[in-house]
């Protein structure tokens, strides 16, 4: 089948993924109440905290405060928590964290990525097809993701990118972390990529790759399908394999049971 993803024979799949993880902001580690209070907090939901990964944030630690990474992490472990990463901190603290096998996690707060329509993002369709998402600061340690929990930790916000113009040949647009909406047509030789769904309010004549981070629930919608290639989460179909019956029609494209489906959009207008 031509719509099977390439690189199936690779011995692994490298993907970006998002985990909800606790961050322990340490401002006064030498406060005698520090561990007793933490222990009390953990006692409220012992199962949730058991072997839970935690990222230390030392940005609020006053400069010059002595901090023994080793001893601190051991005390955390005694409470059931595992320090898996360090955010911020001084050079010494970072070295100590690395020595303990912890990851250095840069502050990946919000969306720092900027959109440069012509320079593209350095991503290529091949990367999208292969599900190789180079998410630079994905949590490094494979900690078990805590189940939906009493912690008020919001999931990373999915944003929508809107392009209110025609997308010309040669232009590559990537919507990281969310949907891409194009109000206009997409020319042959143009390429749309999104971690979420792609909506084209116009004719889709170029390439559209939705769910490039591996999201199999993402979809592609367009007003007139004449695409060179469509792909969802790595499964693709080239123009030649798109049937005449659905060409130049309003369609939606989605995955179901591992197959790429292209269905006409049927609207019931009374």
């Amino acid at each position: 089948m031509s719509n099977q993803v390439a690189f199936r024979d690779a011995p692994f799949q490298l993907r970006g993924s998002t985990f909800t993880m606790m961050v322990l902001k340490v401002s006064d580690p030498h406060n005698p109440n520090f561990f007793p209070v933490l222990s009390g907090k953990i006692a409220q939901a012992p199962n949730f905290f058991r072997h839970a990964g935690v990222v230390l944030d030392l940005d609020d630690l006053p400069a010059g405060t002595p901090f023994d990474m080793d001893a601190f992490c051991k005390l955390l472990r005694n409470l059931g928590l595992m320090a898996v990463g360090l955010q911020g901190g001084t050079k010494e603290q970072q070295d100590a964290a690395l020595a303990r096998g912890m990851a250095l996690i840069s502050a990946a707060r919000g969306k720092a990525e900027t959109f440069d329509p012509l320079a593209g993002t350095g991503r290529s369709p091949a990367q999208g097809l292969a599900n190789v998402q180079g998410q630079p600061h994905a949590p490094a340690a494979p900690t078990p993701a805590p189940a939906p929990a009493p912690l008020p930790e919001p999931a990373p916000q999915r944003t929508t990118m809107v392009i209110a113009e025609n997308v010309r040949s040669g232009r590559q647009i990537y919507a990281p972390g969310g949907d891409l909406v194009v109000i206009g047509s997409v020319s042959p030789g143009a390429e749309l990529l999104a971690d979420g769904s792609i909506h084209v309010y116009g004719a889709l004549r170029g390439r559209a790759l939705a769910g490039v981070g591996g999201d199999q629930t993402s979809r592609i919608f367009c007003q007139s399908l004449d695409a060179e290639l469509v792909s969802i989460a790595g499964l693709y179909r080239v123009s030649e394999d798109i049937g005449k019956d659905i060409r130049r029609r309003q369609v939606q494209i989605y995955l179901n049971n591992g197959y790429l489906h292209i269905d006409p959009l049927v609207t019931n207008v009374a």
């Binding site: 390439a6 290529s124 369709p125 060179e228 030649e240």
Partner: peptide, 15 residues
């Protein structure tokens, strides 16, 4: 043109 999936540049980049 209806059968292009990967290209020369993908091969150069090892993709």
């Amino acid at each position: 043109e209806r059968r292009v999936v990967f290209d020369f540049i993908n091969v150069i980049n090892g993709e």
